[in-house]
Design a protein around this nucleic acid. Structure first.
Lengths: 232, 232
DNA sequence: GGCCGAAATTAGGCATGCCTAAATCATACA
DNA sequence: TGTATGATTTAGGCATGCCTAATTTCGGCC
């Protein structure tokens, strides 16, 4: 039974979860401010308030950054589960395009009840990923791990499969779909300069140039390790 | 394009709409306070702020009550449309019981986009009523009128059909369902005292006693005037 | 060890929307 | 025509969560 949160608190916890990465490293006020589009001073204020609470969602050390407590992590994962379930629901049941779901889910994730969360999951057959390939945390907070890597870091000539794509830029998402860059698609990075763009063979198509910007939003895994959860 | 509102403002507008009735009469601060579960002083403050805005959602006269402006009415109907569409969606698509939908819709109604509203309506085939029989306003603000009357005021021996029931008390709703008191059900009020309870024949059942409390949440129309929209 | 720039924090404010307590208004009734 | 009573409004506060401006801390570099 996690303590009561506001929309703002949820957003902070989710941001800390996303910025701290798999290793749960400390997150700086500045990084949070940039991610939340808020002034650093506001972040300090919020973190202090959160850290004072008993029980607390975060462990906060002045000048050294913040990380989630167990409680905070549980809440952040719950909100993330809401977000991703809602995205899949909007996409699969209500015919939203994959570039439309993020904005809607971003609002609704704070306001659905446990009951609605459960009914949505059941209706969908307990899906494992959202439309962009992100893994949906289990209700108990478990997250199936996957060692995905940014496409921009992937070595040449090694067959890869897209595991997930960033959902924060609708234009990029439309462009990706147009090029066939969706979770589950196989690709190979061709040798050549990697400065402004990558030469990539997408699926069975002829090799294409991919802007660094677009590539930065794409994560991949090795060809044979994809467990088959990601849907096209 | 109605101006931007907060959840609190939406709740005030909806409350004014519901309390002012079909004739759009003035609503008193006290009535609003009771309906919104807020102190009268808070209502005064909010109404003053709303009335000051340009353009304004309300027409407010000190000491004499408030009514909606055209703008306010449009927004109130939009929120009501959201609420009722969501109720039907939760009920029909996500297997919510009819006593569970109100609470969830009460929150979500403020946070769904136009797009989601439209997709929900389309998915449902543009329904005319919510699970409790209330008419869903059209997107343009039109409301199919219906001269329904509280069951407690209905004359004896005249065949009636339940048009709608109040959705604010889950216990009452469960009790109604158990007794077969759902929209579309026919009934006849038997002669007798109407002090604490009514003697009513529900559908084809033997006459039953109905507490005044339960009856107060039920609205009816004359048997042959129901246009067939309400579902059992 | 001291200095500098970036990062972070403190200080003081603002808007929303609620509260309680203390006036004030409207009105019915004697 | 007063006056009591209930409805309503005013006055002053509190919590949330954001802001800007000013100050402090951190950490690398000379």
């Amino acid at each position: 039974m996690t303590a009561k949160t506001t929309e703002a608190v949820d957003d902070y916890l989710k941001a800390i979860l996303e910025l701290s990465g798999p290793a749960a490293e400390r997150v700086t006020s500045n990084a949070l401010a940039a991610h939340l589009d808020v002034r650093p001073a506001s972040v300090t204020g919020m973190l202090q308030k959160l850290a004072e609470q008993q029980p607390s969602f975060v462990k906060y050390e002045k000048h050294y950054g913040v990380r989630l407590s167990e409680l905070g992590k549980r809440r952040a994962l719950e909100v993330q589960r809401h977000h991703r379930l809602i995205e899949r629901f909007l996409h699969d049941v209500l015919d939203f395009a994959w570039d439309e779901v993020h904005e809607e889910a971003e609002r609704l994730e704070h306001y659905i009840s446990e009951r609605l969360e459960d009914r949505i999951a059941a209706k969908l057959g307990f899906p494992e990923t959202d439309p962009h390939g992100h893994i949906i945390p289990e209700k108990d907070g478990e997250v199936a791990e996957r060692k995905e890597i940014a496409l921009s870091q992937w070595p040449c000539a090694v067959p890869a499969v897209i595991s997930s794509v960033s959902d924060r830029d609708p234009n990029a998402l439309r462009e990706m779909k147009r090029m066939g860059l969706v979770p589950g698609t196989g690709l190979i990075v061709k040798p050549g300069t990697r400065y402004a763009s990558l030469l990539v063979r997408i699926g069975a198509q002829a090799p294409t140039r991919l802007s660094r910007e677009l590539a930065s939003g794409i994560k991949v895994v090795e060809r044979r390790t994809l467990t088959g959860n990601a849907r096209g």
